[in-house]
Computed example of a mutant assay.
Amino acid sequence: MTVIVRDFRPQDAEGFARIRRLSLPFMLFTAESIAYDVAHAHPEAHFQPLVAEKDGELIGTAQVGLVYDSPQPGQGYLNVFVHPERQGHGAGSLLVRTAEERLAVLGSTKLFAWVLDAPANRAFAEKRGYRASRSAHFLRLDLANGTLPPRQALPPDVELRSGADFADDPRPLFALDAEALADEPSDIAHEFTDYEAWLRETWNHPLLSHELTTVALVDGHLAAFSAARTDGATRYGTVMTGTGRAFRGRGLAKLAKNDSLHRARAAGYTEAFTGNDSGNGPMLAINDWFGYEVCATEVCHVREFH
């Protein structure tokens, strides 16, 4: 039978997550997190995942939407992954074509797609008019068998707290996250101003661990943080580590991340993952100090409609 592409349905969550895990084993996905992302996406994002199906089996996925929080209009994204053992049936091509049609109707003039840095994947993107842009690394740390740097003594004006300590009022964390994100290397500029959207998409996300997220305070002021996600089993990931502009250069992000890593290992997590833009030298140096090793690289590809 032929491959068909259709909209994601709630009952697809487990199959969608399985394909994403097989394609990107260094990122955290669960059926619950996929379903949550779909149900709580910002209306202006027009987030509509697609699935490719053959003989009743899900063989491909696409995350499709608009970059609603950018000051530049008309930017869309599509991230397509096909089950590693079901490639060659045309699912990827059909997912891309369907996603592009959807995004064009929504007014997109510039599309972004992350592509794993392998010759076949890059050729697939380039054949469809996408040009390579910046790259990013996935990194892995063996928490079970590796050796973490010891905890460092804190300066007298620095205190480390858990994200759970801010459950009653996470707004200060939102402000710190927004400031750090604004300075992240990226092809897309973001304006992180919607607190309610941040609550839905970040703070209340089912993968976020408030307990393993660490916040560094200087004289009581929020200064740096390392946000942690887990799959609830053995895998842990830091999805954002950042420092407020006024507090940079003091090693606070390293202190926060080291604390989170030690607590994750104590809680029984055996693998730690993170990701870095390949041009983010300071963060790559920090992760090298922890013992992370690059396990894969992906390249952002861009296509513009004229």
Rank of each mutant, 00 (worst) to 15 (best):
T238E: 14
G220A: 09
A175Q: 14
W198Y: 14
T234Y: 07
A175L: 15
K254V: 07
L208R: 12
L212H: 02
D168S: 15
H221Y: 06
T193H: 13
R248E: 04
H190K: 12
H262K: 01
A167Q: 15
A223K: 03
G232Q: 10
A228C: 11
A175V: 13
A216P: 06
G244A: 05
D169W: 10
W198I: 09
A175R: 12
R229C: 10
M240W: 10
F225C: 06
D168V: 08
I188P: 06
A197I: 11
L181I: 09
R263S: 08
L181R: 08
D177I: 09
L199E: 07
R263A: 03
H210D: 05
T238W: 05
R265G: 09
R248C: 02
A256I: 11
A216T: 08
F174T: 04
T213R: 05
D194A: 08
D187M: 12
L199M: 11
A253I: 00
R171F: 15
D259H: 14
A246I: 01
A175Y: 09
S260R: 06
A216K: 01
R250G: 07
D219P: 03
A246E: 13
R265P: 11
A216I: 02
T234V: 14
E211C: 12
D219Q: 12
D219L: 02
G249T: 01
L208N: 10
A264G: 13
K257V: 09
L212M: 05
D168L: 13
